[in-house]
Design a protein around this nucleic acid. Structure first.
Lengths: 104, 104
DNA sequence: GACTCGCATAAGCACGTGCTTATGTATCGC
DNA sequence: GCGATACATAAGCACGTGCTTATGCGAGTC
């Protein structure tokens, strides 16, 4: 998966929200659907797109399909941004902030 | 400009290529057009979209319009990714590599 | 087996998007 | 002023996208 498709898949706000809800917490489709005001097929379609981009994993268990986010799939996106993000001092300051927050 | 529009604007490959060409080097529209096999209006339309997202700046000089990229506009995108990119060890290793390359 | 349940897929539709050609609007050279 | 140049904007079109409802399909329940 190249960054081209990542940008496209993440461009839709609903799909991005679906991804965000799946970060750190595995959810079944119906549980996930509860958070949105769209139909179940719409949720499944977003999940299929996210899955094609490698952004979510699927785990089948009986009738249920459990999905979880794979943030590592964002790496190509980070790589692309890194190529064009100058202003490294600010960047490093930002990173320090994040690390500081993680220490707490 | 929020990350929503950044993703959408960067989702188009041609538009992303336009942005990439303008990083570090200011160019006029016609000079920019020379690198693509699309019409001049198409280039102008991409530039307008990039400008609305704050990704490029415009400088008028007589008949000419010079455009240049503003990579700092990518910050909201980086912020968004930072919220969901776990796997910090790898991330820091990557950053170290970049810094090492910058020292040379 | 018959009926749910959880989810995926199909088909259709409204709307967005990226391109084209045509045209408008300054600015320059003469 | 007049034509050419550089670019932007308008209008139209083909295609993509995200949604809906309808349907399919395997897994569970009885």
């Amino acid at each position: 998966m190249i960054e081209a498709d990542l940008f496209r898949v993440l461009a839709d706000p609903t799909r991005r929200a679906v991804f965000e809800r799946l970060v750190g917490r595995e959810m079944s489709v119906s549980e996930l659907k509860a958070g949105f005001e769209i139909s179940q097929p719409a949720v499944s379609q977003h999940l299929a797109a996210l899955r094609a981009a490698g952004l979510v994993r699927e785990r089948r268990e009986g009738r249920f399909a459990y999905y979880s986010a794979d943030p590592q799939a964002l790496t190509p996106l980070v790589d692309w941004v890194d190529r064009y993000r100058t202003f490294w001092p600010e960047r490093i300051e930002r990173l320090k902030d994040v690390l500081k927050r993680m220490d707490r």
